[in-house]
Amino acid sequence: MNIVVAIKHIPSIADDLPVKGNNVDFDSVDFVLNEFDEQSIEQAVLVKEAVGGTVTVVGVDMIGELDAVLHLALAKGADKAVKITGDDPAADSHQQAKWLAEAIKGMSADMVFAGVQASNDLDGQIGPMIAAHLDMPYIGGVSSVEVSDHTATVNKEFAGGIGGKYSVSLPMVVGVQAASKPPRYAPISKVRQVAQTATIEKVSPSGDATSGLAFKKMAPPVVTGHAEMIEGSSKDVAKKIVELLKSKGLA
């Protein structure tokens, strides 16, 4: 099995996002691995462990700091790492999906995994777009994958805890909602060892695509309503909440 994981390095939303012009100021934000991609990497490695093969992780190097992410993926069980040296922090999902698809084309992938979404998917997620470019079927919202005889059986989650089981003749692109097991811990010893020994293949970006969206404004959401904030120490907060609940007969 040739398994490819397409990942996204995205602005961290742990802190406030600075705005420059009509978009996020990409030069002054930290980039992190899309959290769904952590699940996606795990699912890919689980499939490899079950049926054998190799896992290649590929991503666009948005700000020149993708190596650390790729090292982590290798430490978790990926076999190869490829970075597309775009160094364009503003590259949108359409552009990234095109570059990724072009890079993946030569990999004879049986399965391509991608996180089902990312917090900067303003113009759509990369998974279905890669599928469109590679002319492979796509299923997103997937929370378990089993493979046998070049057929994948995946569970897709719908709303309300309902799901659907699908069988897909490979190759395909999978949008991972959650891996069938929680992502594993990559020992720092392993990450450091990988950082010293691993080679990351560099690929130049190829193919143009655009979201076709013109950004008119980017700002924190206009707040229509806001919670009544309870001030004070944690003990004060607790006291007020308990009082509130008692007054409403909820405690």
Binding site: N23, V24, L213, A214, F215, K217, M218
Partner: peptide, 8 residues
């Protein structure tokens, strides 16, 4: 955290 206005 953000709201974006975009036009296709």
């Amino acid at each position: 955290k953000m709201s974006a206005d975009v036009s296709p």
